[in-house]
Amino acid sequence: MGKDGFTCVECNEKATELHRDYNNGILKITICESCQKPVDKYIEYDPVIILIDAILCKTQAFRHILFNTSLNIHWKLCVFCLLCEAYLRWSLLHGSEQSSDPADIIRYTKEWEFYGMFALATLELSAYCGGVLCFLWLVLGRLQGATIELSLLLRALLLSCYGKVLLIPAVIWEHDYSPLCLGLIKIFVLTSNSQAIRVILNSSRRLSLLAVCFGVLAETCVAQACNKLPWSIQDI
Rank of each mutant, 00 (worst) to 15 (best):
K41A: 06
S203E: 11
M117D: 03
E13I: 02
L190M: 02
L229E: 02
H64Q: 03
V139W: 10
G131C: 12
V212F: 10
L207G: 03
E149V: 05
N24W: 02
S232C: 07
L83G: 05
W112F: 01
L157C: 15
C213Y: 14
N72D: 07
T220V: 13
D21R: 00
S194Y: 12
L82T: 04
L154D: 14
G2L: 00
S204P: 07
I105F: 14
S232V: 06
C129I: 08
A127S: 05
T122Y: 13
L133K: 06
G145S: 15
E113D: 04
C84W: 05
G5Q: 04
K41E: 03
T69W: 10
V189A: 07
I187W: 05
F118N: 03
S160I: 07
Y177K: 08
N227W: 01
K76N: 15
C11D: 07
H74L: 03
I106F: 09
C134P: 00
S100Y: 04
G131D: 03
A218E: 09
G2P: 01
L82A: 12
L125N: 08
S91W: 10
L140T: 13
E10A: 11
C11H: 05
G215R: 11
S178K: 08
S151K: 13
L56Q: 11
T69E: 09
P47G: 02
I29M: 15
L51S: 12
Y162H: 07
W75F: 13
W137S: 15
L93K: 10
L51T: 00
D46E: 13
C78W: 06
I236E: 11
H175Q: 12
C181W: 12
C221L: 11
T59Q: 00
K41D: 07
T109P: 00
I50V: 13
N68F: 02
N72S: 13
T109C: 02
Q144H: 15
R63W: 04
L184E: 00
L133M: 06
L56V: 04
G130F: 03
L182T: 10
A225C: 01
I172Y: 00
A170T: 02
Y108R: 01
R155D: 07
L210S: 03
I172D: 06
T191L: 02
S151N: 10
V165K: 00
R107K: 15
L167S: 01
R63I: 00
K76F: 14
S178C: 08
E149H: 07
L166K: 05
Y115F: 14
I233C: 06
R142D: 08
V9M: 08
W137T: 15
H94Y: 14
N193D: 15
G183D: 11
V139H: 15
I55F: 02
A211V: 09
G183Y: 10
K186F: 06
L143F: 08
I55W: 05
I29A: 15
V79K: 13
L27Q: 13
Y177I: 10
Q60D: 04
G163F: 01
